[in-house]
Design a protein around this nucleic acid. Structure first.
Length: 426
RNA sequence: GGAGGAAUGGCAGAGUGGUCGAAUGCGGCGGUCUUGAAAACCGUUGUUCGCGCGAGCGGACCGGGGGUUCGAAUCCCUCUUCCUCCGCCA
């Protein structure tokens, strides 16, 4: 969330930014500033009374020590009315703080100045594209048919065991999945990311830290008995490693990568978009996370984009990179690039990665800070993350784009992970 | 799951109702000494909110929440986590 000093000092810029994000609620900002004023005056009064209370308590202590019981009891009587006043004041102050927090979490992050205005994904701005869209031969199939033909993925079996959207990978399909995970992780670690294998369930505080709660409560699977959430992305447990942490400036950047399954309820999705691997409830993803110095976070964002781009190029997939418009930008992000690969048989672009700079928005919730050498006060760090990469749609595009008479060609970079001589699935 | 013990500053560790935000040691930072370093000595060293142009002043925080009291690190309740033992288990 945004910090109150920032809101107070940048009201106009915030309103302009929220406009870009199609967030029409300027009165919310006024409410916050007003409530903060109220909170401050409550705190001043409370602090004054508390100081008075502390003073009297000490006096009573002294009096008892020197044996002046009578006098002590007199002073004691003074405290009762102060105590009563203090009780209501403290309650009011606490209520104001809670209310303020409730309002603050409703304000989304402010988009970067470069973010184009727009209503939906149709208004996203294409940055560049690469790779060649293959011309598929007659009789080529979408990936769900290929998956069946080569016995790679069994969707019906997943329905039996769990439900729709929980595919079962088997044989070469399972192996290709594992090859992709291993290759992604190896590429990320050789780019300087430390590999993390985090828990797949998180508590409420973690969900709040990265912004899934309270905003996207309904999108996560919730184990109510233990009040734990299945992670929708590795971003949640990995970024929360640094919750309530003060780093040294020289520790920056922190670069982590993690493979995890991801769980999403995807409530409200329907139709052809959910066919096959296009949208599933459980999928595998390798994530990269960076904690950066504020002055270098946009540099880091570009570096992450180039890194993800290389992965897609090496897989030989046709792709395009989009800068998300205000309307498509997530609640917590300041700037996001989406990567899409072309699914030849479905004749459409599939999102496979989303690389974002959250600036200090998550860090403020996480209380993730760093200290400049010699500085007294810690500062909020910037957090960034990106998929490198989400597997299902990569799998879909690979199967569809690489299909041929003799089977499905396996990209050269993955062949070492598939075992010797495995150049295609047939 | 059952029984017992514990949770204090970066770390170790005192403190069982009255200047305790907290002794002491280690570590860190600054200095003296030294050609330089070590040792020694001196100083300094948590987070946070508010008021103030500022020097500064006030408040909160001893795992979390609540309570008793004029006053709580200290007493009570509750939750969480860790340790030991038993049970179960990959």
């Amino acid at each position: 969330m945004l910090t109150i000093p920032f809101i107070r000092e940048n009201k106009d810029a915030i309103l302009k930014g929220l406009e870009i994000k199609n967030f029409h609620s300027p009165e919310l900002i006024d409410q916050i500033i007003e409530l903060d004023n109220e909170r401050r005056s409550l705190q001043v009064k409370t602090n004054e009374l508390q100081a008075e209370m502390n003073r009297l308590s000490k006096e009573i202590g002294q009096l008892f020590k020197s044996g002046e019981k009578e006098k002590a009891n007199q002073v004691k009587e003074q405290t009762t009315s102060i105590k009563q006043q203090l009780e209501t004041l403290e309650q009011d102050l606490q209520a104001a703080n809670m209310q303020l927090n409730e309002l603050l979490v409703q304000v989304p992050n402010i988009p970067h100045p470069s973010v184009p205005a727009g209503k939906s994904d149709a208004d996203n701005m294409e940055i560049r594209r690469g790779g060649d869209i293959p011309k598929l031969p007659e009789g080529s199939m979408p990936h769900w048919e290929l998956a069946k033909k080569y016995k790679l993925i069994d969707f019906e079996l997943g329905v039996k065991i769990t439900g729709a959207g929980f595919p079962v990978y088997r044989g070469q399909g399972a192996k290709l999945q594992r090859a992709l995970i291993s290759w992604f992780l190896d590429m990320n670690t050789s780019a300087g990311y430390e590999e993390i294998l985090p828990p797949l369930m998180v508590n409420e505080a973690s969900g709040f830290g990265t912004g899934q709660l309270p905003d996207k409560e309904g999108q996560m699977y919730h184990a109510t008995l233990d009040n734990l959430y299945l992670i929708p992305t590795a971003e949640v447990p990995v970024t929360n490693i640094y919750r309530d942490v003060i780093l040294n400036a020289e520790d920056l950047p922190v670069k982590n990568t993690a493979y995890t399954p991801c769980f999403r309820r995807e409530a409200g999705s329907y139709g052809k978009d959910v066919r096959g691997l296009n949208r599933v409830h459980q999928f595998d993803k390798v994530e990269i996370v960076q904690i950066q110095h504020p002055s270098r976070s946009y540099e880091a964002l570009e570096e992450m984009v180039l890194h993800v781009e290389q992965l897609i190029i090496k897989l030989g997939l046709p792709y395009r990179i989009l800068e998300l418009c205000g309307g498509d930008l997530s609640f917590t992000s300041a700037l996001t690039y989406d990567f899409e690969v072309y699914s030849a048989a479905q004749d459409k672009w599939l999102e496979v990665s989303s690389v974002s700079n959250f600036e200090s928005y998550q860090a403020n919730r996480l209380k993730l800070r760093f200290r400049e050498a010699g500085e007294k006060r810690p500062m909020l760090a910037h957090t960034l993350n990106g998929s490198s990469l989400a597997l299902p749609r990569i799998m879909a595009a690979l199967l569809e784009n690489n299909q041929g008479q003799e089977g499905i060609a396996i990209p050269e970079v993955l062949q070492p992970y598939m075992g010797p001589g495995n150049v295609r699935i047939s």
